[in-house]
Amino acid sequence: MNASDILTPKGLIAAAVILLLAVMPVLTTIADQAFYLDIATRILILAIAAVSLNLILGYGGMVSFGHAAFIGIGAYAVGIPIYYDEYSGWLHFPLAIAVSALYALITGAISLRTKGVHFIMITMAFSQMVFFLFISLEEYGGDDGLLIWSDSEFVDGVDVDDPTTFYYLCFISLMGALFLVHRIVNSRFGRVIRGSMSNDKRMKALGYPTYGYKLTAYVISGAICGYAGALMGNFTNFISPEMMGWTRSGELIFMVVLGGSGSVMGPIYGVLSFLLLEEFLPDFMDLFSKDAGIYWHLPFGIILVLVVLFVRGGINGLLDRWNR
């Protein structure tokens, strides 16, 4: 990306969105609307997860239908140590990353032996496995979930319990994840996974053992998503297996596709629109008819179907067309 790319409608919108996210705590403080900072924080965390999924889905063509498991694993990597009075974030976050990466390595090694629908379904099955594992772990709350009564502690004087501080931790993390993924997809490694998405057979004929490359990408993606999970654990102060259900993974895929998979900003647009719809569609419907908002899933589902049928390339794709 260079300077001239930013001076297009698409570039300006990207810059505006990031700038808006950067000053969000200031805005919500001025407006005295702490609630909106909450939504914005959730957007940032899910955006990190979506960016991680985009790495393998948008650039590597691996439709992982189990990414919510990583969020759950990351969150439990915060919750379980705190349950045993281990409060250090220097433990929680590396643990979240390490366990997610290990889980990705094992499940990816098996899943990537398959292709297409088998891959989709086996990644989903593995996440269901984690889901049921935590449901049966009565010690950590089972299906009632686990309360996290403290936040991760990093250094004295920095309190991530403070919403603004935490918001900026998430913001910096998202920028870091974006930059990391941006570098990866443009590197030699990135070209290999993009190539294998486009045509795996061709890559093999060129001499790439693509399995190892895809597995590496899968592990990186899982690790980033686990990190997002650790943030989520700190944010919600509560974790339940429900966060890992397969519908959550489905929503994450939808966020990526809605925003535009295989583009840098796509996942952010996707999460942004998804969460804003989720938040405001019910209120909007209530305007027309009292209590109609409880049926917001109906227009939401219809929007989902219509987006899949008619909006190629998601929001980012629309901006691309506008650019020309």
């Binding site: 570098r183 443009n186 590197s187 030699r188 490694f189 290999v192 060129l206």
Partner: peptide
């Protein structure tokens, strides 16, 4: 493909 392995994650190809 024939320039050694491609596990290079950072430099812009």
């Amino acid at each position: 493909a024939h320039d050694g392995h491609s596990f290079r994650f950072w430099a812009d190809a």
